[in-house]
């Protein structure tokens, strides 16, 4: 194995670790920090892949990731939770070990699902596809297990990170137009969801989404 492959594997392992850490994290502030770290590792991964394969457009997408996912979005989220006054909120998660075991099962499943595809791919990053799928599924699991609005949104954003990583590992990234489109989509979605938070809180007096399960008004 060449050094760049080893480094890419290391980045993939770090991303998986961060995904699990997000799953277990109770504090919203730390969750945002973890999300920023995930973006940073993703950026490093893109740069390594770009350098080792000579794909210059990956540098731009790395720059985009750095700007949006490491700086802008965590800043927006940070300001949001200060404005919403939930900076020190701690979510009561029940049974983290069980969630973790489900997460391990998801990792095994996604490795198995990704195996045939990665055998077909010719990229040097092909073995990390399984981890990319695992990150998507783990973020999904996080969205399922969380009850508050902000962690669910962070789960959604982490899922997008996983998709981006999957694109990098199978085809050295998507075309620039698609990438820009997704990045702006996520950014706009983030802004709209930010406004949503305020609306939700105004209507229900809390950000707990269990209030939204009832569809009828009394």
């Amino acid at each position: 194995m060449t050094l760049s492959t080893q480094l890419i594997n290391l980045m993939a392992a770090l991303l998986l670790l961060i995904a699990f850490a997000m799953l277990a994290q109770r504090r919203i502030l730390s969750l945002i920090h973890l999300f920023a770290w995930q973006g940073a590792v993703l950026t490093a991964n893109s740069v390594i892949v770009a350098y080792s394969t000579g794909q210059t457009h990956l540098y731009y997408s790395a720059l985009l990731t750095l700007a949006l996912k490491v700086i802008v979005m965590p800043l927006i989220l940070h300001r949001l939770i200060i404005r919403l006054n939930i900076k020190w909120d701690v979510e009561t998660l029940i049974n983290i070990p069980t969630t973790m075991l489900v997460g391990i099962a998801l990792v095994v499943i996604s490795f198995n699902v990704a195996l045939p595809i990665s055998q077909l791919a010719g990229t040097i990053t092909r073995s990390t596809l399984g981890i990319a799928v695992a990150i998507v599924l783990l973020s999904f699991l996080m969205m399922i297990t969380r009850r508050k609005a902000v962690p669910q949104v962070i789960g959604f954003l982490a899922m997008e990170n996983g998709l981006f990583f999957a694109a990098t590992s199978t085809t050295y990234g998507m075309p620039m137009v698609v990438e820009l489109g997704i990045a702006l989509d996520v950014l706009v979605g983030m802004l709209i969801l930010g406004i949503f938070f305020f609306q939700v809180r105004q209507a229900f007096d809390s950000l707990d989404l269990k209030h939204m399960e009832r569809l009828k008004e009394e």
């Binding site: 594997n9 993939a12 670790l17 699990f20 070990p97 973790m100």
Partner: peptide
């Protein structure tokens, strides 16, 4: 403590999975 050691177990299993499936 069970949560702490559950995390340790998780890390160990992740290490093993990465070795088995990523070959790293």
């Amino acid at each position: 403590a069970p949560e702490f050691l559950g995390m340790a177990f998780l890390f160990a299993v992740l290490g093993m999975l990465i070795r088995q499936l990523l070959g790293a």
